[in-house]
Nucleic acid binder design. Sequence first.
DNA 1: TGAAATTTTTTATTGAACTAAATTTTTTAT
DNA 2: ATAAAAAATTTAGTTCAATAAAAAATTTCA
Lengths: 209, 209
Amino acid sequence: MAGLRERQKQDRQKRIVEEARALFMEQGYEATTIEGIAAAVGLSGVTVHNYYGTKAGVLLAIVAESDRKLLERMGAALSGDIDDLLELLLNFAAIVRQHAVTNLNKQIWRQVVAATIVDSESRFAKTYHELDHKLSMVLVREVERLQREGRVSAEISAFALGKGLFHLQNTRFIQFVSSDEMSDEDAAKKLRSDVSALLHALPSRVAAE
Amino acid sequence: MAGLRERQKQDRQKRIVEEARALFMEQGYEATTIEGIAAAVGLSGVTVHNYYGTKAGVLLAIVAESDRKLLERMGAALSGDIDDLLELLLNFAAIVRQHAVTNLNKQIWRQVVAATIVDSESRFAKTYHELDHKLSMVLVREVERLQREGRVSAEISAFALGKGLFHLQNTRFIQFVSSDEMSDEDAAKKLRSDVSALLHALPSRVAAE
DNA sequence: TGAAATTTTTTATTGAACTAAATTTTTTAT
DNA sequence: ATAAAAAATTTAGTTCAATAAAAAATTTCA
């Protein structure tokens, strides 16, 4: 039984996040001021500070919201019908990139990535990393399935492989948002080349032993 | 024949970088002001701005300097005596981490990584990425050697594999500097687990075909 | 040496994030 | 309905990065 005050608080927070997102998209992150966001919502700048602490805090709240949607979508999209590890990861990565540019833009994503690194210890960065973790666990579960199907060696740790693949995806994602020129296809191509090389790096084991 | 003015300019820049590094280490990045750096060198804050544009510009100049040293060291350290791909990368990564914490500290490295992402297009971020590229090419050349020795499959692209390994190293490096708690051993262990899983992910090819 | 060119510094301002404290408004509970 | 509690706002101020424009200093070159 959430009291009226609590509901109003949540409503205000929701409005802040919505208006902030709109302003960031319209004017860019740096050009948007906290006072501007507050004015758009009809609150004082100090109130926004009270809720989110810093401008980066507001940004990460937007992303947390958007990432929750991505997580849902990913669970559904990767519903166990891809039988090749490489294709699985490329699919995963394509969904992440598409979601990213649909909800925000590259310039803003650069600020997001930077903020999560600089303020690693902040509450907002922590929820971001939690969502990242959950996202990577989707991959881990898919790897487990491929192991059961004999497509991936049963001897390795699905967790380690899932995480490793996620990292490669993430690196190329950061490169993707870091350059306004880099196309979705470029990013996909580069990720394919990374993963493919790693998966086939070692000479066939039978021959080597 | 560099004129006097040019020499003085370089001398001033060197002093700025040195003093800035000292102050960043003493007081932390955020607590250090451009005016403070300028005062320590005996220049005006505006002059520092003229040279480096922004505070992040000064920071990246420090890193460029330090990374040049790392590149030299890496060339010598990895002089072709490791015959296992995984051990090679772990060695590479250990050198990078050790160099990082010796020259700067984690808190500052977080700012570095963030700055190179946010200001991707700046002159300073570009030289940073160039040095990163050269660093990764050291790995590519080592992979080529392992291919010649039959330790790595001749069928894959050494470039792709070198880059892929570098990315995994880089991701774990960023995680390493992002957490003050994470030890060097932790970072090494996690990287080993990533790479190892990826290298042995696929079931032995002979059996599969 | 002295005039011209270039650089640095001084001076002044702006803009914005963030903070502190007092006041007002709103909500809750008696 | 009213007192008490909690939250939001106002007001005021600090700090610092960044920029602009004019003045001063330095260097180059004829």
